Amino acid sequence: MTEYKLVVVGAGGVGKSALTIQLIQNHFVDEYDPTIEDSYRKQVVIDGETCLLDILDTAGQEEYSAMRDQYMRTGEGFLCVFAINNTKSFEDIHHYREQIKRVKDSEDVPMVLVGNKCDLPSRTVDTKQAQDLARSYGIPFIETSAKTRQGVDDAFYTLVREIRKHKEKMSKDGKKKKKKSKTKCVIM
């Protein structure tokens, strides 16, 4: 069974824990209790493949930012979460993405942009803004509501699919490099 290491990042209060708990335990946590770091595991079937999701729910508070490099190193894919009623959390996505790329030393890291709290009427981040940002990053965008469960499975499952595509691409690139290195030079 394939294991996928997913990391949920975003500013404090955007609903990272609520999304994760909704996926794992099928219930909505409405009281806000700032996370330092929590880890969850769940076995699911995605596109006919049974897999184990190892999900790291991270601290959004700035005082825990020193811990970010460590979990970013171990993560295979990242859910970059903002709240649709919090423009600052949307603007912060850029910083999370840049930090992930720096730590992973790669421009090509599996990510999904997630606009959470889409059940709320007080939207300050337009869907088109988020779609445009995701398009500019070359990553999928999904709106979710941890409260109603809308888009929750889709967000995590899409990230797994992005990781699969990335692994497939990397193995193809690896095979191309191996083929090239088999060419021999004969000096007579």
Rank of each mutant, 00 (worst) to 15 (best):
P121N: 13
D153P: 07
F141S: 07
N86L: 02
Y137F: 06
R164F: 12
M111F: 09
S145T: 15
S122P: 08
E31T: 10
A66K: 02
K178Q: 13
E168H: 12
H27S: 13
E63Q: 07
D38E: 01
T144S: 09
I163D: 01
N116L: 15
Q131T: 11
Q43D: 13
Q22L: 03
D173F: 14
Q25W: 01
L133S: 06
I139L: 15
N86Q: 13
H27G: 13
K88S: 14
T2N: 15
G174R: 10
L56P: 00
F156I: 08
L133K: 06
I84C: 13
V45C: 10
R68I: 01
T127F: 15
I84Y: 14
V160C: 14
Q131K: 06
G12Q: 13
S122C: 09
E107M: 14
S65L: 05
D153Y: 07
E62G: 03
L120F: 15
V29P: 12
D92V: 08
E3F: 05
V112K: 02
R68A: 04
H94S: 12
V186E: 15
G151E: 07
V103S: 05
T124I: 07
G15L: 03
A83Q: 13
V103I: 12
T50P: 12
I46F: 09
D173P: 06
M67H: 00
G151S: 13
A18P: 01
Q22H: 07
T127A: 05
L19R: 01
C118F: 10
I46K: 08
T124K: 09
R164L: 12
R68P: 01
V7M: 05
R149E: 07
K182V: 09
Y157E: 10
S181A: 09
V9F: 01
G13E: 14
V114Q: 03
R41H: 12
S171W: 04
Q131M: 08
S65K: 09
Y64Q: 00
G75T: 03
E63K: 05
V7K: 12
V109I: 11
P140F: 02
D33Y: 02
P121H: 13
D173Y: 08
K177E: 10
H166I: 10
N116K: 01
D154S: 07
P110T: 04
V44M: 15
M170L: 07
V29S: 08
Q61R: 03
S65H: 09
I142M: 04
T127R: 04
K5I: 01
V160Q: 14
E49V: 08
L6S: 05
F28D: 01
Y137G: 12
C118N: 12
M111L: 08
V9A: 07
D54R: 03
G75L: 01
R123M: 12
R164A: 15
T50Y: 14
D47C: 10
I139K: 04
K147W: 03
F78W: 01
A11K: 09
T158S: 12
E98C: 05
K128Y: 06
T124E: 11
V103M: 05
R123D: 14
A11T: 14
S136V: 09
I21E: 13
E107W: 07
A155V: 08
T158M: 14
Q22E: 09
D33V: 01
K88M: 05
Y32A: 03
S145M: 09
H95G: 13
K42W: 06
T58H: 00
N26Q: 14
K175D: 10
T20Q: 03
D132Y: 05
G48A: 07
V112M: 09
I55K: 00
D69T: 04
L23N: 14
M188S: 12
A59D: 00
D38V: 01
R123S: 12
L133G: 06
K88I: 07
G75D: 00
N26C: 14
L56R: 01
K172P: 06
G60V: 00
A66H: 01
K178P: 09
R73C: 05
S39M: 08
L133F: 08
D47L: 06
N86F: 02
V9P: 02
D173Q: 04
T35R: 00
K165N: 10
F90D: 05
S106N: 10
I100D: 01
G115W: 11
S136C: 05
L53G: 12
C80R: 01
M170D: 10
I100V: 06
S122H: 08
I36M: 04
L56V: 07
G12M: 13
C51W: 12
H27T: 14
I46R: 13
R135Q: 07
L56Y: 00
I187Y: 11
K169P: 15
I55N: 04
L79F: 03
T158Y: 06
V160G: 08
E168N: 04
V44W: 08
Y71K: 00
F82I: 14
T2Y: 11
T20F: 00
E76P: 02
S145F: 05
K182R: 06
V81I: 08
T50A: 10
V125Q: 11
N26E: 14
D30S: 13
G15T: 01
Y71V: 00
I21V: 10
L159A: 04
D57S: 01
G77Y: 03
A11N: 05
V81A: 06
Y32P: 02
L53S: 13
L159W: 03
S136R: 07
P34H: 03
Q70I: 01
I187P: 15
D38N: 02
L133M: 06
D105N: 13
R164V: 08
G15Q: 11
T127W: 05
Q61N: 11
S145N: 13
D108I: 05
I187H: 11
L23G: 06
M67I: 11
E31I: 11
P121Y: 06
C118Y: 11
C185A: 15
V44I: 14
E3T: 06
K177G: 08
G174T: 09
D33E: 05
K117A: 14
A83C: 10
R68T: 02
F28H: 04
I187C: 15
S39T: 14
A83M: 07
D119R: 12
Q43C: 08
D57L: 00
F82G: 15
L19I: 11
D33A: 01
T74F: 05
L79V: 06
G151C: 04
T127C: 11
T158G: 08
T183A: 12
S89V: 04
E62V: 03
T158H: 15
A134G: 06
Q70K: 03
K176Q: 06
L56E: 01
L6F: 06
G60T: 00
D30W: 07
I187S: 13
R68S: 03
A155K: 06
I100H: 01
K88V: 14
L133P: 11
E91R: 14
V114R: 01
T74Q: 05
C185Y: 04
R41T: 11
M170C: 06
S181P: 15
Y40G: 00
Q25C: 13
L19G: 15
K117P: 03
P34C: 03
S39D: 06
I139T: 07
F156G: 01
S181H: 09
A130P: 08
M67L: 14
K104Y: 03
P34N: 01
K167I: 06
K184E: 10
N86H: 04
G77C: 14
I46W: 13
G115L: 11
K42H: 12
I163S: 03
D69A: 02
K101H: 06
E91A: 14
R97F: 15
Y64I: 00
V160K: 10
Y96L: 15
E63C: 05
M188F: 06
E49C: 06
Q70M: 09
I21C: 14
V45L: 10
Y32M: 02
V112E: 01
K101Q: 11
H95Q: 12
G13T: 07
Y64L: 06
M170V: 09
D119W: 03
Q61T: 07
G15V: 01
C118S: 09
K172Y: 14
S145A: 15
E31F: 15
Q131V: 10
C80E: 02
T35L: 00
S136D: 15
A134W: 12
E98N: 14
E3Q: 12
R68F: 00
V152T: 10
I24M: 11
E76G: 03
R135P: 05
Q129I: 12
K180M: 10
Y40V: 01
F78Y: 04
V125L: 08
N116S: 13
T58D: 00
M72Q: 02
E107I: 07
V109N: 03
Y64V: 00
D57H: 00
I55F: 04
F78Q: 01
Y71C: 01
T20C: 07
A59N: 01
I21M: 15
